[in-house]
Amino acid sequence: MTAADRPRGWLAALFSRELRLSLRSGGGALIGVLFFLAVVTVIPFGVGPDLNLLARIGPAVLWIGALLATLLGLDRLFQADRDDGSLDLVLIAGRPLEIVVLIKCLAHWAGTCLPLVAAAPVLAIFLNLEPLAIGAVTLTLAVGTPALTLIGAVGAALTVSLRRGGLLLAVLVVPFSIPVLIFGVSASGAAVSEPAPFLAPFLYLCAITLIAAVVGPFAAAAGLRFSAD
């Protein structure tokens, strides 16, 4: 009896398939971390190597870098599956497509965004962040990047049939990612500056992720169905 035959075993099977595909050769998931590093490295050349200034804008730089790296990897979410035809198999398999999308998003997040979260403390040292701020940025990135992936899944599903959908995908997703950016940066900034509360924006960030976990898979599944027929 294989994993796919057991009840709910197909969820684990799908998750591990997606994760393996994104991590092994040709998946390109870890290029996102390199891109993240490149963005953070470029910033001191742009704004000057003033350590006080870098410490102040550091959380925002890390968030923008993570946002750009996430956007860069989003077209991998459904594109490869559509190219080799496995997306059509998933569509006709009769499994709830919303759940499939959610699992794919989770695996995509674990493959591309979790390395970003893990890299954030190291890059934060480049930006002269204090230990408390490093913890806050890493925590907000860990909570906030799933929302970016789930929101991005909608754009990825809508542009899946396009030849060069990557740029359009980024344009479509950026407006929706602004609330995530606002609350992520304000929460990580509030951890350092004393009067502003950390918990309120952090809880808003959690709420956005939960909302995205509901809305994203439904809208993305609808988009995939329409692109198939």
Binding site: V154, G155, A157, L158, T159, S161, L162, G165, L168, V171, L172, A219, A222, G223, F226, S227
Partner: peptide, 19 residues
């Protein structure tokens, strides 16, 4: 941009409607 990128107006309309 989404409407203009997709050639088939019916499919573009559905994608744009979701967004």
């Amino acid at each position: 941009a989404l409407w203009r990128t997709m050639e088939d107006p019916i499919r573009a309309g559905k994608a744009a409607a979701v967004l």
